[in-house]
Design a protein around this nucleic acid. Sequence first.
RNA 1: GCACCCAUAGCUUAAUGGAUAGAGCAUCUGACUACGGAUCAGAAGGUUGGGGGUUCGACUCCCUCUGGGUGCGCCA
Length: 544
Amino acid sequence: MPSLPSQLAARIEAVAGVDPELRPATKPQFGHFQSNVALRLAKAEGRPPREVAADIVARLDIDDLCETPDVAGPGFINLRLRSDVLAAAVNAQLADEHAGIAQAQTPQRVVIDYSAPNAAKQMHVGHLRSTIIGDCFHRVLAAKGHTVIAQNHIGDWGRQFGMLIEQALDEGLDLDALDLAGAEELYQRANAHIKADDDFAARSRDRVVALQAGDETTGRMWDKLVGLSKNGFNQTYARMNVRLTDADYAGESIYNEMLPQVCADLEERGIAVHDQGALVVFVDGFDAPAILRNSQGGYGYDVTDVAAVRYRVDELGADRLIYVVGSEQTYHFNLIFALTRQAGYLPERVEARHVGYGMVLGPDGKKFSTREGTAVHLDDLLDEAEQHAAPQIALAAIKYADLSNALQKDYVFDPERMTATTGDTGPYLQYAHARVCQILRRAEAEGHRTGPVTVIDEPAEQELALWLTRFGEAVDEVAAELTPHKLCTYLFELATKYSVFYEKCPVLRSEGQVLSSRLGLCAATRQVLAAGLDLLGMAAPERM
RNA sequence: GCACCCAUAGCUUAAUGGAUAGAGCAUCUGACUACGGAUCAGAAGGUUGGGGGUUCGACUCCCUCUGGGUGCGCCA
C-alpha cells in the first residue's frame, strides 16, 4: 500500500494538476501535513493564493483520509489525518516485518568502501568515522532490500613492507608469535632504522622488488604480516559491533595484477599520456592529472582506485559505488570518478559517491594526536568512553555523537558529553527504549492485551502515532542522501514524543480498549526504536 | 596563489526556497512518595559571520568580503 503522504499527495495533484510538494506540518496546530501548492500556482494564475487554495480544497476528494482541510496563513493547505486512518497505519506498521521500511522496488548491488586501515598499524582515530558511517550505510541499505558489498580497502601493499620484512629478518623475529601491536612496534623500529642506515634502506628497496617479483620467502612473510593485521582489525571490529568480516577485506594488493593492464588500455586509447616521465591522465576540470605510473615505474593510489572502480563495476556488478573516506580525499575521488567515466569504466547508470566527513578533534579542538604526535589508537578512544559508561552504552554514545551531526563537520571527541544520559545522545535513546520495554514487560506479566491501536484521542497519542508512521521516510532519506543525522534526529524526536505520551497518557493505569491501544503504541515505539538504533549500529538493551 | 568544505543562542547543533529559525547542554521557575525523575511543563537566550543580488517569500540560490579547516603530479 502506498504511504499516507503519497496517497494524500496524489489526491491533491489530481485536483491541482501539479505535485503539491506535501510536507510534514511545521507545527502541530497546522495539522499533520501541509502543501504550499497554492502559493506557487497563484502567480501563474494571477489570483490571490488563498483563493486558489480555497478552490483546491473545495474540489478535493479526501474525506476518507482526512478531516476537512484548512486554508491558513498566506495560502497553505493544511491536512489532518482521521484518527482511524492513523491508527490503522500504526497497526499495519507494527505488523510489518520491516517496521515500515519500504523495500526497494529495484534492489541494487551497492559497493561500500569503508574503514580501510593500514596493515601493520593499529586502527586509529582516523578510522573511527569511516568505520561507523560505512557500517550505518551498510545497515540502512541492506534494510531497504539492497545487496550490500562491503569493501575494506586496507593498505596491504607498498614500500613499507620492504622495510618491515627486512627488519623482521634482521631481528630474527617470529612473525607467527607477533600481534598487531607488536607489528606496529616493528614498524616504528624499521622506520627509525631506515632513516639512520643507508644499507638497510637499500635492502628494504630490494625487498620490495622481491615482493613484487613473487619471491616465496618474502611473500610468505608478507602474508603473515597481513594476516596478523586482519586479526587485530577483527578484534576492534568485534568490539565496535560493525558488520565487517574477513570476506570484506579487499586490500590494495588485490588490484596489483590489474594495474599494467589498466595502464596499457588507457595508453592505447590515447587517454593516458607520458608527461615528465610519468604516465598520467589529464581530466577536464582538474588542475592536476591522475598519475597512473610514476617516473620510477611504480604504481600509486590513483591507478589502484581506477582499477578498483573497474573491478567493482565489472566483477562485483555494482549499481552504486559509495566511498566513505575523509574529506581530504575529495579531489582524488572526483578525479577518479571523472577519469573512469571518461574511460567508460564507470557507466552512467552506476552512481558513484564519495562521502567525505570531517575530522575527529582532540579536547583542544585540534587534530587528535598523542603527546608524541602520533594518531590516537581507536581502542584507546573506546577505553576512554568506557570509563564513563558500560561498553554497549559507551559504544552507542560514540556512534551517536559521530552520526548525529552533518558529516562534513569536524567534531571534538568529548566522552563526557557523548555519554550523557540526558539530551540528544545515544544513551538517552537507549533509555527511552529500555523504558518502553519495562512497561511492556509489566503489561505482559499482568496479563494485558497489547494492541491494536484503536483510540487516538489525546494530542500526545496523536503526535506519537503520526511520528511512528514517518520512520520509513526517515530511512529513505538516509538511503538516498547518505545523511545518517536525519535518522538520529528522527529517533530523538520519537523518544521525546514518547516521553510526552508517557507523561500525559497513563498506560497501565488505564483500562479496556484505551489500555490495549496505548500498549499498542508502546509496542510500535519499541519496534521503531529498536530498528532505528540497529540501523545506527547501536545496541538496544531492554534494561539499563 | 588556486580549489573544495565550514561559519546559526554562552556551548553543541537542526531546518526539501515557505507560516513566529527548531532542539539539546548550561541558567532560572514549576510538577514530585513517580507505569524507571536517566522525566515532563515553562522562562530567558538569534539582526542565521559582514555587504550586495535573485524571488511573492532566502539560514537555504548567485556575487563579494572576512575568519577557520583541508587539499593542491610522481607516499597512499
